Simulated assay, not measured.
Amino acid sequence: MTHDTPLSPRPLHHLADGRRRLMTAAQLRAHGVSAAETGRQCRPGGPWQQLLPNVVLLHAGPPTSEERLHAVLLYAARERTPAAVSGGPAPASVPRQPGGQQPFAADPEAMITGLAALTLHGFSAAPPLPSLDALDVLVPRLRRLRSTGCARVVRTAALPTAVRVTGLPVAPVARALADAVAGLTDPGVVHRLLTEAVRGGHCEPAAVVRELNRARLLGRPHVVDAVDSLVAEGRALAEEHLYRMVREHALPEPVWNVDLRLPGGPGLGGVDAFWPEQAVALELDTRGAHRRQEDDAARAEQARRREHLERLGITVVRLAPRKLRASPEHQAAVVRTALMAAEDREPAAYVVVLPR
Rank of each mutant, 00 (worst) to 15 (best):
P254C: 01
P254E: 03
V255F: 03
W256K: 01
W256T: 06
W256I: 05
N257F: 04
D259N: 11
D259K: 09
L260G: 02
R261E: 15
R261Q: 15
R261L: 05
L262W: 06
P263N: 14
P263H: 04
P263W: 04
G264T: 06
G264R: 05
G264S: 09
G265K: 04
P266I: 13
P266W: 10
P266R: 15
L268N: 06
G269V: 07
G269Q: 03
G269N: 02
G270N: 08
G270I: 01
G270H: 08
G270L: 12
G270S: 15
V271Y: 00
V271T: 01
V271L: 04
V271E: 00
D272K: 03
D272S: 02
D272M: 05
A273P: 11
F274W: 10
F274D: 00
W275E: 00
P276S: 07
P276I: 02
E277A: 15
E277K: 12
Q278L: 00
A279I: 00
A279G: 03
A279K: 03
A279S: 14
V280E: 13
V280P: 07
V280S: 05
A281R: 03
L282Q: 03
L282A: 03
E283Q: 10
E283F: 03
E283N: 08
L284G: 05
L284W: 02
L284Q: 09
D285K: 11
D285T: 11
D285L: 14
T286V: 08
T286D: 10
R287P: 04
G288T: 08
G288L: 09
G288N: 12
A289I: 11
A289W: 09
A289S: 13
A289Q: 10
R291G: 11
R291Y: 07
R292S: 14
R292E: 13
Q293M: 09
Q293S: 12
E294P: 06
E294T: 06
D295S: 02
D296I: 11
D296R: 15
D296P: 13
D296S: 15
A297N: 08
A297L: 10
A297E: 12
A297V: 08
A298Y: 10
A298I: 12
R299F: 11
A300M: 08
A300G: 13
E301W: 07
Q302R: 15
Q302V: 05
A303H: 07
R304M: 06
R304C: 00
R305L: 09
R305S: 06
R305H: 05
R306C: 12
R306A: 11
E307C: 08
E307W: 06
E307H: 10
H308Y: 12
H308D: 08
H308A: 15
L309M: 02
L309S: 00
L309E: 01
L309V: 00
E310W: 00
